[in-house]
Design a protein around this nucleic acid. Sequence first.
DNA 1: CAGCGCCCCTGCCCGC
DNA 2: TGCGGGCAGGGGCGCT
Length: 271
Amino acid sequence: MPELPEVETTRRGIQPHIEGKKVTRVVVRNPSLRWPIPNDLELFLKNKLVKNVTRRGKYLLLAFSRGHLIIHLGMSGSLRLVNSDLAIGKHDHVDIHFGSKLILRFNDPRRFGAVLWTQDPVYDHKLLHHLGPEPLSDAFDAHYLYLRSRNHRQAIKSWIMDSKVVVGVGNIYANEALFKAGIHPLKAANTISKARYTHLVDEIKKVLEMAITRGGTTLRDFVGGDGKPGYFAQELNVYGRAGQPCVTCAKVLSEKRVAQRSTVYCVNCQR
DNA sequence: CAGCGCCCCTGCCCGC
DNA sequence: TGCGGGCAGGGGCGCT
């Protein structure tokens, strides 16, 4: 249920438990995700040690001594560490065993996710090589966004959701950050001033950081727990609140579909 | 060639 | 209680 904070929460949850551990077995029950899971996945992974667990955008990267496992959770995927005696549930498509007890289990009802293997330098992979800066890095700043936006007329909301521009800004947080920054989601990217980009960058970082902090509160549930991310509990100002009053000015929030995604905003506070 | 829609898939909620 | 329609947090890809 992954926006970037959930992916990062997942990474932090699994990393300490599998880093340095050896894969003993791989079970693929259903290989048909967004792209087919390689059918010789076990061959690549068996007896290999996990060197580290990193993240690029919403892609989780498990580094092995020779190659990387690339995992994307899509719209409905989750990755949990479970004990090997836990019953297999619906949509549990992949199990990666670490010894006799520990399993990293990939579940994905809608199967928009991906589990891929590459032996090449991982950032050369076709899914990663074009990606823009990490939103929480210093490279993502107003100067960068402003310069890059000058020849883009597209609506600011879909523009900041473009992974070539910046990774990890999903629909919920795009809505929330634009509200906080007071920017109308349909405003053309190239018409927004540098000062307003400063505000937007600030709000994107803040909302993502806050959500990661909240997500962190569920970390303790990662082993054996239900693994549900905590972000539904957090206060959202606009997402899911169309027709309800704006928290700032009480005017009824509007909703439009922008690039096929639900977009909620306040016509009074966002211009 | 920037940028728009399509589409992959299951589940859930709502209205009839 | 059953069924059809619409919508869901992603994002690559094929068109124009």
